[in-house]
Amino acid sequence: MPQLWLAVFLLLLLPMPSATAETTDDSVALIAHPNVRAVSLHPNSARAIFAMRQRTWPDGQAANVFVLPDDDPLHARFSKELLNVFPHQLKMAWDRAVFSGTGQAPGRVSTQSEMLERVATTPGAIGYVEKGGADARVRIIELQ
């Protein structure tokens, strides 16, 4: 029995995965079409845009939102770490917008390479990829 308690104690000492900002902030990158003038985005704006509540970039340009499937692990990380919302809340926000006439649904892509492709070719586009996964066709947007 004492061994078990020791094991539990040691487990508690291990760094908590994805619990602290420093270890996770750099794992997902916001990306945008090169014609987007913004180089950074306030977290509030990012959340409002991805929740489909705000339809433009801060300078007035139309925002075109792209997301991975709800059950994609990167989508879950993106929601929780960059936007600070759970994926089920985002999904509910989209459904409410679409079915109440207050907003549109985000564009859906099924893979990160498709995400890059669509963001690179859609003016005003915003999306996300694993950091290091972005290429020269898109612009990285920093969160302020």
Binding site: R55, T56, G60, Q61, A62, V98, F99, G101, T102, G103, Q104, G124
Partner: peptide, 18 residues
């Protein structure tokens, strides 16, 4: 049964109906 359509004729305008 429901069907809806929406359109953004300008960046700041949404037209939606169901």
């Amino acid at each position: 049964v429901g069907v809806n359509a929406s359109l953004r004729p300008r960046s700041d305008v949404l037209i939606a109906a169901q």
